[in-house]
Every structure is written in structure tokens, then in C-alpha cells.
Amino acid sequence: MSKSNKLFSLIAGLVLAMSLLLTGCGGGGGSTTGNAAADSGSGAAAPAASEIRTVTPGVLTVGSDCDYPPFIEMNGEQPQGFEYDLLSAIATEMGYELEYLPPQNFDTLLASVASETKMDVGCSSFTITDDRKKLIDFCTPYFDSNQAVVALIDSSYTSAMDFNGKVVGAQSGTTGADWVRENLTDSGTTLKEYNQTSEVMAALVAGDIEGAFYDEPVAAEWASTLYTNTHIVESIPTGEQYGFAVSKGNPELLEAINDTLVIIKNNGTFDRIFLSYFPDLTPPSLGANG
């Protein structure tokens, strides 16, 4: 799609979204796709593109902070990673074009999804939490994750609670930041929040903070690639799960993505993508058998 074409469809999409808002009309009455896929698993048909409302018709627009390898990161202007590959597969299966917005601010991403004006899907390794569910809906979890605390290799910390009373960092709006607030309750604890996890790491390397709290898979990835002078002090089992965020006002899209997840799970696409990034882990069931 050429640039001018994109611009045109963007404007068209905006106009459409505006008119939808003005007329107060949702995306048609009730669920048309049904949940046939959920119970049988194999025989679900791809939902027809025309039935689902997206910001730009025919395009699945995704917002992410694009700073969380191996899930998502920027390679020049091109996003890459597990989540990108997964969403590409989902979009292809649904008959949609996939478009990633430029990197977004993590802490306002969900509000952006809820407003339905900019993006259809928020995908930035979002842990599914009840608080977030108040604002948006989550699709079926696609990844099991945990927290970790990272420090410089030559530091003497041995556990996460060692950081109680220390200056630590986390990305703003993350479950890592929440974990610090809930568990490091000493009054001396200072939590510094950053827009991006890479900035948290920069602050750690710079000696601005003593420990960095964020998701364990990313910590493991970075400790072995980009930030080799850091290591995971402790992995914190939290059993959290990632899910795509979709507006509460668009249950059709939620359902379509969930159905598509089942389809690509059953045809092996999901596992192939999953294992190409995480060969040592077991792919989740995605509710395909439940």
C-alpha cells in the first residue's frame, strides 16, 4: 500500500469512525460469529472481514511500545518479535492487513485502545489483570510470564526483597511497577518509572537505580544479548499471562481474534511461531481443548 493510499484510508477510517460515533451506532446487532470455534476447535471458519469494525476497514491496527524483545522490538522502522509474528498470522487468517502504529507510550496504550480512535488492538506484552479488564477486554492469553529483578553483575544483591528500601526502576504502568509498590514497602524505597523498559535498563547501567523490575522473559533475553553486564537477581513467580487488549465496545473483534487464535493453534501455526522464539517452553493451550 502506497503512502498516499494509506493516508487516504486513514482519513476515510477516521471519517467513518466519527460518523459511527455520531450516530451512536455500534458494529451491528449481537454476535454473528458465534462461538462455534470454541467448542469444536477444528472446523471454525475465518470470520468475514466485513462484519468486524476496525479503525481502518480491512486493516488491523496495532499499538505497542515496541521495546520488549523477544516479544516486540523495532528493527529500524519495522517491528519484529513473537507478538508481531503472532499478530501477522492472526491478521492473515482473518483476511486483514496488519498495521503497526509507531511506538506508543505503554502507560496510555490501554486508554487508547478503549477510545477506539487510533488502534484496534493493544499488544505490548500486557499482563491480564482485573484492573485492566475494567478498561478493556483481553483476548485468550497467549503467553505465561513472570517477573524478574535485574541488577548489575557486580552488585551483591541475591533476592528481590534485598531491594526493599533501595532506589529501583520499572516501566511506568507495568505489573513490575505494581509489584514494587506492593512488595517493597519500606519507606526508603524509591520507585523510578520510565516510559520504556530500555530506559529502565539505561538507568540501571548508568547507576541511577539499583534494580530493574520487569518481565522475566525480557530480562533473560536482554541479560544474554544487549545488557550482558546485568543479570537476573531473582525470578519472581507470578504466573501472569499476556493477552491482546481490545475495546470493550467491540466484542465482535474480541471474539474474532479468540476464534482465530484457536484456528492457528489447531493448524500448528501458533506452536511453530511460539517454538521459534521459545524452544524450551511449552506452548499454551489457548483454550483450544477447553
Binding site: F106, D107, T108, L110, A111, A114, D131, R132, K134, L135, G169, S172, G173, A177, K192, E193, Y194, N195, E199, A203, D208, I209
Partner: peptide, 22 residues
Amino acid sequence: AAVGVMEQMMFAKSMVASSGNM
């Protein structure tokens, strides 16, 4: 705020992050 200095923006940002509201 971008480099973790606690000031107005930072306070606002973390409230926005936890409330999902502007």
C-alpha cells in the same frame, strides 16, 4: 519525567497509568 526525576509530569503519568484515565 522521561529520566525518572520525580516531578509534576511523573506524578501525573503514574496516576494515568494506574487509572487509565486522562
